[in-house]
């Protein structure tokens, strides 16, 4: 099976004043194509630090990292930018959409930084991505004209538009209510079923149950890495009492 991500003995140490903070203390694992992995752990356990390295936003202090077969641990800033642009799709907790910019233009954004893509194809791919997240009738809405869940869908569409080898999400449901969280998880499950590899950081166990594998971090170490039988988010959604807000 195709290894999308492989890390070996990954360490990340932060220098805070004279003190050293070891956020990641040598972790190794790999993610295969088509997996839906949740990365769990308490606050400060190193989830975001790990995800930033996986997403090529940060470089490990030591250890090896391969994404889609290419070594990413010793790249320059610009090379990492290009890697992010071609191979990675990010979904953030706070959506990070450009204000006063339509959904369509927000989704087009990553492709503007890839000069190999002509404007016609850019438009088509953005439309397709918005269709995948079910927002084909909200193309020209501004972020402030969309609900939180819809904004997160736009952000997911933006992450999908460059056809990344992996989707990385950091607390992507952290700002949403239960119903909307389930909807988003259901969307992730659908994308995963279509073949997308997904790594999903969360500290909520009832969100992690929708993924097929859980990596548990504690204090910079992996304490558990086990496959789980994912629950269908659509079913949980249907099971929610109607008209009741959580």
């Amino acid at each position: 099976m195709n290894r999308i991500i492989e890390i070996q003995e990954l360490r990340r140490t932060f220098q805070v004043g004279s003190e050293q903070v070891h956020a990641l203390k040598g972790i190794s694992f790999f993610i295969n194509e088509g997996e839906f992995v949740s990365i769990m752990g308490t606050s400060g356990s190193g989830k975001s630090t790990l995800l930033n390295i996986l997403g090529c936003l940060d470089r490990p202090t030591s250890g090896e990292y391969f994404i889609d077969g290419t070594a990413a641990s010793k790249r320059t800033k610009d090379e990492l930018s290009t890697l992010r642009n071609r191979k990675i799709g990010f979904v953030f907790q706070s959506y990070n959409l450009l204000a006063r910019t339509s959904a369509l233009e927000n989704v087009e954004l990553p492709l503007l930084y890839n000069s190999a893509i002509p404007s016609k194809e850019r438009r088509e791919r953005a439309l397709h991505a918005l269709e995948q997240v079910g927002l084909q009738d909200r193309l020209h809405h501004m972020p402030n004209q969309l609900s939180g869940g819809q904004q997160q869908r736009v952000a997911i569409a933006r992450a999908l538009v460059n056809d990344p080898v992996i989707l990385l999400a950091d607390e992507a449901t952290g700002n949403l209510d239960t119903r909307t969280s389930y909807e988003i998880m259901s969307l992730f499950q659908k994308l995963n079923a279509e073949g997308k590899t997904i790594a999903f950081v969360t500290h909520e166990p009832d969100i992690a149950i929708f993924t097929s594998r859980t990596v548990q971090l504690r204090d910079g170490h992996i304490v558990r890495d086990a496959p789980v039988t994912p629950k269908a988010a659509a079913e949980s959604l249907a099971a929610l009492p109607v008209d009741v807000d959580f």
Partner: peptide
């Protein structure tokens, strides 16, 4: 700043 961070995270080089 957030916008700049976002642009970088989706692949903008420093030069961009």
């Amino acid at each position: 700043t957030k916008e700049i961070g976002l642009r970088m995270s989706i692949g903008a080089h420093n030069k961009d």
